[in-house]
Design a protein around this nucleic acid. Structure first.
Lengths: 337, 337
DNA sequence: TTGAAAGCGATACCAA
DNA sequence: TTGGTATCGCTTTCAA
């Protein structure tokens, strides 16, 4: 896991080559104004000639600073998270941070390991999208850490730190209400891990939409699953086998919706014609899928940008009051071609 | 861009607390076997009580090693690259490396800056997916670097280092030949940056397929573009405006294909019915798009895994002969629903 | 098996 | 403005 490169050209070498002291050379690489133009030029020339590469690691060690940010997400292969990451990158780049990336694949063990890795690597801050099974231990650990942390997407109970997330309840309400307005009275809720807050909040929106419309909920139409396409496919097949398939389905995420679409098709049912489906997230695929997927936009990229910006802000002002940014979702209606 | 955290608990503190020397404590955190079980236990207890966090950065500085890998890709928002990154992550994780991520957005300036950043951060190796305009300067710079580099996806002329890529020519041949077999004689080639090797190689496959079928090429049907959905959309609209739209289109990438599909639809043309389209990459979206996209699989994730594995190998054996891994593509036929 | 001292490559601080 | 010296937190080397 490690490797020994050849000897680096050090600032010492540069200083010697230019005939100045190490301290002076250091000032120059840091763009300090208090150094004579002539000296600077001399040193810059030496840097160039020797092919000197600044050692940020050594500098950070000495100055007790950090220019890297640990970003922990669930899965780069999931478009929602890659869009989120895109936003994070765009924002952090502005401030000159470098991103150390970790992916948990929704495993608590991986999450704990990654947090350790980030700390061992002296990151200046952590952007954490917690796994669905995050325990209070994770929370306690983060609490005792003296490092800025911003939690994204999934909130951790009892953890009072900055948070950026989505109003899942409002999103679910929009989606389910849309189906109700289309005349549906029986609406399934498919997918997602039911003991995560991202699920319970959607459930609350699902419930509220039913209540406001004076409809009762058929709990046999609510099936959770792994938050993947495969999970969605399996869940819908179970529903079909039990012969309880309704005419409308609200899916936990677009990914789940695609699984549902594939599952339906496998069973000879035509999604979009026989059945109305609404997703959640508005990942780019939703725009070109068939049938075109009506969904709730969770603005993944924007969420990433907000989270990164919040982290940066927290790093500058550790004492400011914690913030909680909730992005409001939007219903994206897509009609059949 | 930096921040000063509170004082860290050091190995020194641990040693003092446990009543041993720093050196002994160091041996223990590195799992050295040559330390008495009793001493180890004592120290581990102190570590726990003090909440000690290993400082990998300081350790790497001292031992002249590195446990991070710089990964430079074009765009996380592009599914091809996020799949590639997924493969890279899966593989590097096995060996305990941490990934420092950089995205160029296909800008040479960003690429140069990111390479510098990676070097300044003492990465143990670099995985570079070069931008399309990579100059010989980039090549020269990499050559003089005494650090393992694996180039991915797009090969750099004159650079003799490990490379992992795809047989674009064979892929393009598969795609174009498929269209020819379906009876088309006029096939457009849309999208991509025409002075990149990834384009010229596809062009070569396009040409070869025509030649083998005894067809001549209509060069007015070849339009390059930015390698994005927007690029594809603009290119196809140009073709339509010039009234030169053929019945078959080979697209540089799936992303381009989706742009083309959207562009066609905007102009009132129904892709899949009026026109045959073939993409390139087989990104996950292709499976659920409408019309279902026939495409050439470039096995993005597998390519990432291979690249990461090659880099690891190179770091272990710097003197081994360079390798060139070319993944063979596959035609994925998808029929209309 | 353990400990003392030097050093990785930079910055901080103070004196000149 | 420049230079000398201590130091960041760890590993290495050598002696005990």
């Amino acid at each position: 896991m490690t490797r020994k490169p050849a000897r680096r050209v050090t600032l010492q070498d540069v200083a010697k080559h230019a005939g100045v002291s190490r301290a002076t050379a250091s000032l120059i690489v840091r763009n300090s104004p208090k150094v004579a133009a002539k000296t600077r030029e001399k040193v810059l020339k030496s840097i160039d000639e020797l092919g000197y590469v600044y050692d940020r690691v050594a500098a950070n060690l000495r100055s007790q600073k950090s220019s890297t940010i640990g970003t922990i997400i669930t899965d780069v292969g999931n478009t929602f998270f890659s869009q989120f990451l895109l936003g994070v990158h765009h924002e952090l780049e502005k401030y000159g941070y470098t991103v150390l990336l970790g992916t948990t694949f929704d495993s608590l063990k991986n999450q704990e390991r990654l947090i350790s890795t980030m700390l061992e690597n002296r990151v200046g801050g952590i952007l954490l999208c917690p796994v669905s099974t995050s325990s209070t231990e994770t929370v306690d650990r983060l609490k005792t850490l003296d490092i800025p942390v911003v939690v994204g997407i999934r909130e951790l109970n009892e953890l009072t730190c900055d948070f950026v997330g989505l109003n899942y309840q409002a999103g679910a309400y929009l989606a389910v209400n849309h189906l109700i307005q289309k005349g549906h009275q029986q609406i399934a809720f498919i997918g997602g891990i039911s003991d995560s807050t991202t699920w319970t909040e959607r459930m609350e929106g699902y419930r509220a939409a039913h209540e406001d419309a004076g409809l009762s909920i058929d709990y046999s139409l609510i099936l959770d699953s792994a938050p993947t396409r495969e999970g969605g496919m399996e869940a819908i097949q179970k529903l079909i086998q039990q012969d309880r398939l309704p005419k409308a389905i609200f899916c936990f995420s677009d990914l789940i919706a695609f699984g549902v679409i594939i599952g339906l098709r496998k069973m000879g049912i035509t999604p979009g014609k026989d059945i109305d489906i609404v997703g959640f997230d508005n990942i780019p695929e939703a725009e070109i899928s068939y049938p075109p997927l009506t969904t709730v936009s969770s603005f993944a990229q924007k969420t990433g940008t907000a989270a990164a910006s919040l982290l940066h802000n927290r790093m500058q002002h550790p004492e400011e009051q914690r913030q909680r940014i909730i992005i409001e979702p939007e219903l994206i209606k897509r009609d059949a071609f």
